[in-house]
Computed example of a mutant assay.
Amino acid sequence: MPTARAQRGAAVEAAAQAYLCNAGLQPISANARYRGGELDLVMRDGDTTVFVEVRYRASAGFGGGAASVDLRKRRKLVLAAQLFLSSHPALAAQPCRFDVIDAWGEPPQLNWLRDAFRLEDC
């Protein structure tokens, strides 16, 4: 049985996916786990593959969830994205980007940070 925290995380990720779908993105994968990292959501925005990190905090104080996507976390996301693309060669030739959904509160408020960081930032 999932913990309350895991249930909360799953609910926030589902809300984030619905939000992005309403914005026109299409889901490719969710919770793709790889050695050393996990991709919360993988979406399609036109011809771009979008790797989405969903970060939830009970409040927006202390920098919110987006501030917790530090250099170490970005490197893990990049590694997981590279592994994902190696197992999906048709997507590997397309452009990609890294977005962050910063979520807080109850019900969760969502702030979508498109192109939150780039590969060269890592």
Rank of each mutant, 00 (worst) to 15 (best):
residue 31 N to K: 00
residue 56 Y to N: 01
residue 42 V to Q: 06
residue 15 A to K: 06
residue 6 A to I: 02
residue 65 G to K: 06
residue 79 L to N: 13
residue 84 F to K: 01
residue 107 P to T: 07
residue 89 P to K: 07
residue 85 L to R: 13
residue 100 V to L: 13
residue 71 L to C: 09
residue 61 G to K: 15
residue 102 D to Y: 01
residue 31 N to M: 04
residue 9 G to L: 05
residue 113 L to D: 00
residue 107 P to F: 02
residue 88 H to E: 12
residue 117 F to Y: 04
residue 18 A to H: 05
residue 41 L to V: 07
residue 94 Q to Y: 05
residue 10 A to H: 11
residue 111 N to W: 14
residue 115 D to K: 00
residue 120 E to P: 10
residue 30 A to K: 03
residue 42 V to L: 06
residue 74 R to C: 09
residue 89 P to E: 13
residue 76 K to C: 14
residue 7 Q to K: 15
residue 90 A to P: 05
residue 32 A to V: 00
residue 112 W to T: 07
residue 53 E to I: 03
residue 70 D to W: 00
residue 59 S to C: 03
residue 61 G to V: 10
residue 10 A to R: 15
residue 97 R to Y: 05
residue 30 A to R: 04
residue 72 R to K: 12
residue 49 T to N: 02
residue 4 A to L: 05
residue 105 G to M: 14
residue 12 V to M: 01
residue 2 P to W: 12
residue 32 A to C: 05
residue 55 R to E: 14
residue 39 L to E: 04
residue 117 F to E: 01
residue 63 G to Q: 13
residue 28 I to R: 08
residue 76 K to E: 15
residue 104 W to M: 10
residue 81 A to R: 08
residue 107 P to Q: 08
residue 51 F to M: 09
residue 15 A to V: 00
residue 90 A to N: 14
residue 21 C to Q: 14
residue 56 Y to G: 04
residue 5 R to T: 15
residue 43 M to K: 10
residue 10 A to C: 04
residue 31 N to W: 09
residue 100 V to K: 02
